[in-house]
């Protein structure tokens, strides 16, 4: 038996909206420590992983580990039936073939319950080694969103370089070129509005903007985003979900043959 009650139900809706375009059919691994998902996109170029900790829920019960095969598009359709202030409860039996979702209004005077059909999904699990990052940047998630959106009007790919000067995003296309450089800041009113750069070595990597733009769909989940760059390795774009967990995206760099 699995049961999880999330007071801030809108977080679940935002999470599904943040990943559903990259991954359509995914396995959620449920254990008494929480809910985990890892899934590659259809082209096997990027990976999406999330963790929702059991202690982030108002109530969490999982008698034995379960794998729930979910069509995220269908789950998103169901979550559209929830109100933005609804409390969401998820339930599944150990050998069941449905996930029950219950939406309770704030005043608990309106209750919706929906059964989502589960599916059997074969999925590969990638082992991601602990990496020593060349550069780690933290910035407002709205800033990241704006950079990748703005550069998408210039080109399809972006060069990201981290140096002592800051972190520079460059795009080139038929209409011209654009560079956006962020410098470290410490003067913002709120800590999360600052740009922080920790650099061990200068690094330059090239990525497809289409994916980086897709990662920005997680912006409503967190006020900040961390971008980890490592020479010759996938970039990690990390959104921490306050008091609940995280969603992380990994994207393979484009490389010279």
């Amino acid at each position: 038996m699995f049961e999880a009650r999330l007071i801030q139900g809108s977080l679940l809706k935002k999470l599904v909206d943040a990943i559903k375009e990259l991954c359509t059919e995914v396995n959620w691994d449920i254990s008494n420590s929480g809910i985990n998902m890892q899934s590659m996109d259809g082209s096997h170029v990027c990976l999406v992983a999330f963790n929702l900790r059991a202690d982030g829920f108002d109530h969490f019960r999982c008698d034995r580990p379960l794998t729930l095969g979910i069509n995220l598009g269908n789950l998103a359709k169901i979550l559209k039936c929830s109100g933005s202030n609804d409390i969401i409860t998820m339930k599944a039996d150990d050998n069941g073939d449905t996930l029950t979702l219950m939406f309770e209004s704030e005043k608990q005077d309106r209750i919706t319950d929906v059964d989502l059909k589960l599916m059997s999904i074969e999925s590969e699990h990638l082992g991601i080694p602990d990496q020593d990052y060349s550069a780690e940047t933290s910035m407002p998630s709205s800033e990241y969103q704006r950079i990748v959106r703005d550069l998408s009007s210039i080109g399809d790919t972006v060069n990201i370089s981290a140096t002592k000067e800051g972190i520079k995003f460059s795009a080139m296309g038929d209409i011209g070129t654009a560079n956006i450089t962020l410098r470290q800041t410490s003067s913002a009113d709120k800590e999360e509005e600052n740009v922080k750069i920790e650099m061990k070595e200068p690094v330059l990597l090239t990525f497809a903007l289409r994916y980086l733009n897709n990662f920005a769909k997680a912006t409503p989940l967190s006020s900040t985003v961390q971008v980890f760059l490592t020479k010759d390795l996938p970039v990690q774009v990390n959104y921490n979900i306050q008091d609940l967990g995280y969603v992380k995206y990994y994207l393979a760099p484009k490389i010279e043959e």
Binding site: H44, H125, L126, G127, K254
Partner: peptide, 14 residues
């Protein structure tokens, strides 16, 4: 246009 290698080329299977 630079080629786009698949992710498993970077990460091993668990």
């Amino acid at each position: 246009v630079l080629p786009q290698p698949p992710l498993p080329a970077f990460f091993t299977g668990a």
